[in-house]
Write a protein that binds this DNA or RNA. Structure first.
Lengths: 188, 188
DNA sequence: AATTTTTTTTGACAAATGTCAAAAATTTTC
DNA sequence: GAAAATTTTTGACATTTGTCAAAAAAAATT
């Protein structure tokens, strides 16, 4: 179920009305079209995004110029390129929308001020970082010692809803295989 | 350079003497022998470890019973299995020492209390979580679309000191390849 | 609805990596 | 320092996955 930002935050911590008002000042909500880029390659990312509805894809171009999906973010998740923000380094990732979406965006510096003022929100940030870690862990385990078929099966089990929403090529590069290989796995 | 916990924390944030005393109450430092297990598979991990000196290896046994290195942690890094702690789930990972080590261990609940009391330490925790994320990111990029040779080269570039300290088999499984393949890459 | 564009599938073959077994080298133990 | 145990290397071959090219299917555009 798509949840707006406040509803989602309330599922993680207690939010009093006054805090709620401040959150609304920091996060800017927008309805954005498919294809829109939340972040462009080569820039420093200094925003934290909450996807209320829709789907985003984070990708980069590898040495041979191939477009490689780094991750997908569906509704009720946060996305960003925190390493870019914290290290003040341009990111080589692009975040694009694969579907029309409602996105809440907060500049990191303001978000951090909000955290300092309302420590109960720290739980939220921990949740966000922790989810980044968990998501990464799963990917690593999959990529580290499972073959293409198993990785696809794991992906299907974990993300059944993404199958219809992302293209074969996007999913293939996410799994670390070519789209021909994924097509063959699927036809079997 | 091996740094003790307080020195390391001071490199990240400002620590006043009183806080220092409290940190010492929460973290318990020990000299431990090679082979010692900081965490055993099947248990919930509720400690955060700081490796002052020495080297740890986190690994698991995959479906075929093969021992797969998940990560290495050298001096001046934190390690733990936070997903296990936060989800109250037994971890399938084991953390073992590959060398004699000096390790500071803090129970998570006490560490969290310390964070609440001293918000300046939050910077430290963010640093820890962020490093987990960054480390994972690099692994994923490597595993996702680089061949065995390139992954080994990346590993050597990033972790020259680990080459002599970890065995071929440990490094091979970390890179997602068999030790025979790594041996052949290396002999080339 | 027809055309164009994009995505997916298929085929033939090449390259990378794994498997199994055994030998060689190194490290640990007594 | 010899013996035992462990780790690393090597060989022969099997399997998996990639590459390139083209056809088929599906989706987007006019």
């Amino acid at each position: 179920m798509d949840m707006n930002l406040i509803t989602f935050l309330k599922s993680l911590t207690t939010i009093v009305p006054q805090t709620e008002a401040e959150i609304h000042k920091v996060f800017f909500a927008e309805q954005l079209p498919k294809g829109h880029k939340l972040h462009e390659e080569g820039k420093v990312c200094n925003q934290l995004f909450y996807i209320e509805s829709g789907l985003s894809r984070t990708f980069y171009f590898n040495e041979e110029g191939k477009d490689i999906t780094y991750r997908f973010n569906g509704e009720n998740t946060f996305t960003s390129l925190i390493e870019s923000y914290y290290d003040h380094k341009p990111s080589f990732y692009t975040i694009e929308l694969l579907e029309d979406a409602v996105v809440h965006a907060a500049p990191f510096p303001e978000f951090e001020k909000l955290l300092e003022k309302h420590p109960e929100l720290m739980k939220v940030y921990n949740h966000v970082l922790r989810n980044f870690v968990l998501q990464s862990n799963e990917r690593i385990v999959a990529l580290q010692f499972h073959n293409a078929q198993e990785r696809y099966q794991m992906f299907v089990d974990k993300n059944p809803h993404l199958l219809q929403r992302a293209s074969l090529g996007h999913i293939a590069s996410y799994l670390g295989i070519t789209q021909e290989t994924l097509s063959r796995i699927r036809s079997k």
